[in-house]
C-alpha cells in the first residue's frame, strides 16, 4: 500500500485502522510499520477529527416514546389449543349463565309466592282492618294463583 493510498483511506475511514475495511487492514498495518512517523501523523490527524465527530449530539429515548412503543408492540397470539380451550370456557360460561337465569327466575317466583302466602296468612289470622282484609283476600289469592 502506497503512502498516498494510505492517506486516502485514512481520510475516508478515520484514524483507527481497526475501523477500516477488513480486507485492507493488514496492508495498512504493514504500511504503517514501514513508516510509523509519517503515516502515524496522518492517522493522528484523522483521529482528531474522529473525536470531534463523536461529540455530535445523540439523544436518548424519553419515557413517553418507550411507553408508546411498548403499548403498540405485538401481543401473544393464542395457539389452536388455547383457542379451543377458550371456546369451551366461553360455552361453559354461557351455559352457566342460562342455568343461573333459570334458577334465578324460579327462585324469584318462589319468593313472591312465599310473600303472597305470608300476606294471606297475616290477613286471615291478624285482621287489623276486617273490611280491608275481606276485600284484599281474593286479590291476594288471585295473585298467588297467577304465580
Amino acid at each position: 500500500m502506497t503512502p498516498d493510498r494510505f492517506a486516502e483511506l485514512a481520510t475516508a475511514h478515520g484514524g483507527d485502522i481497526g475501523r477500516w475495511p477488513q480486507d485492507l487492514r493488514e496492508a495498512a498495518r504493514a504500511a504503517l510499520a514501514s513508516d510509523p512517523h509519517g503515516l502515524g501523523a496522518v492517522l493522528a490527524a484523522e483521529a482528531d477529527l474522529d473525536r470531534l465527530l463523536d461529540l455530535a449530539p445523540a439523544q436518548s429515548a424519553d419515557a413517553a416514546l418507550l411507553g408508546r412503543l411498548l403499548e403498540a408492540a405485538p401481543r401473544p397470539r393464542r395457539s389452536t389449543g388455547a383457542w379451543w380451550a377458550g371456546l369451551a370456557a366461553g360455552l361453559g360460561l354461557a351455559a352457566a349463565t342460562v342455568a343461573g337465569v333459570a334458577v334465578g327466575v324460579a327462585s324469584g317466583a318462589g319468593e313472591r309466592l312465599d310473600r303472597r302466602a305470608d300476606a294471606i296468612l297475616a290477613a286471615a289470622y291478624e285482621p287489623a282492618e276486617p273490611d280491608t282484609t275481606a276485600e284484599a283476600l281474593p286479590e291476594l289469592l288471585d295473585e298467588a294463583t297467577d304465580l
Partner: peptide
C-alpha cells in the same frame, strides 16, 4: 420473540436498537 408477542423480547430489542436508531435520525 417480538413476533410471538413476548414482551421481554420487545424490551430487549428496544434496549439494543432504539438508541441507535434515535442517534441515526438525530444526526
Amino acid at each position: 420473540g417480538v413476533g410471538r408477542g413476548e414482551q421481554a423480547a420487545v424490551r430487549r430489542l428496544l434496549d439494543a436498537r432504539l438508541p441507535r436508531i434515535l442517534a441515526l435520525a438525530r444526526r
